[in-house]
Design a protein around this nucleic acid. Structure first.
Lengths: 138, 138
DNA sequence: TTTGACCTTGACCCCCAGGTCAGCCTTTAG
DNA sequence: CTAAAGGCTGACCTGGGGGTCAAGGTCAAA
């Protein structure tokens, strides 16, 4: 598929795709005329890249665990042996961010429902306050 | 307290504090000599601001729910009546981000442990996979 | 009174993830 | 043959969150 098609299929701009390539996140084939050609897996890959970038990771971070994001079939354990530790660190960072965001959310919910500290059962667990119904979506 | 003390107490730089003020997130008193003077609550406030900024929110976003972050005592419900809906939207956005990050984390954990989807009990809950011991720190 | 630490404003700089524009090439449709 | 649509590279611009001077005012201790 050409760059424009991929852009439409994955919901990012053409410019972003070229940028990802420049950052080493994507390596399309090149036709004789110079046009980029992507295979089907690129759609999932690009979505994953976008997911990470829009959640505060840098392009360099993303490079680190690209092999895990190729598509449905994950391929790290055997596939990239030396990076296991690196990925562990990333997971730890993720847990930290999740905990932080959860804390902020809890405060806001608390503010909305009038105080009644739900005494957070476990870090990362969503505190369901009876009086506040969460905005659907999960 | 002076700006340097607040900086040390809250763990951000003096520059950042001036920037927050410029963005309307902080309004210290001014002594006759022009020095900024902060009250005790500023420490918590600044920590909260930093928390949000470092988690992908913009200064403008932060302005939106400042009154909820003042310190231990939350003050939204009656204090800023018109903004309840806005805060709800922010909470929704937070939930979304948390869900996204959780998804990424799950994928990575999955990659580390060799597939065996831990079927996430509840969004936000940390999935403890038997074979994968998390890198300490929590 | 002088030194040093701390404060003030203003100005310019950086990085990141792209947006935008210019100038040119290629492919398909009419 | 020409026009439109899409592709290519290179280059400059942007906005957010600050870092880093520069030039000067203030204050406490020696």
């Amino acid at each position: 598929m050409l760059i424009g098609e991929l852009a439409r299929a994955s919901g990012v701009t053409v410019r972003a795709l070229r940028y990802y390539e420049q950052q080493g996140l994507l390596e399309p084939e090149r036709a004789v005329n110079g046009y980029r050609h992507y295979d089907g897996g690129a759609v999932a890959r690009v979505r994953n890249i976008q997911l990470l970038l829009s959640n505060g990771f840098t392009a360099q971070d993303v490079r680190g665990f690209l092999p895990c994001l190729d598509d449905g079939e994950v391929s790290l354990g055997p596939a990239c042996p030396p990076s296991v530790e690196a990925v562990s660190r990333k997971v730890a960072a993720l847990e930290e961010r999740i905990a932080e965001l959860s804390a902020v959310r809890d405060r806001l919910v608390q503010a909305l429902t009038g105080n009644a500290t739900p005494r957070q059962p476990e870090p990362g667990t969503i505190a369901r306050h009876p009086a506040y119904t969460r905005p659907a979506h999960d």
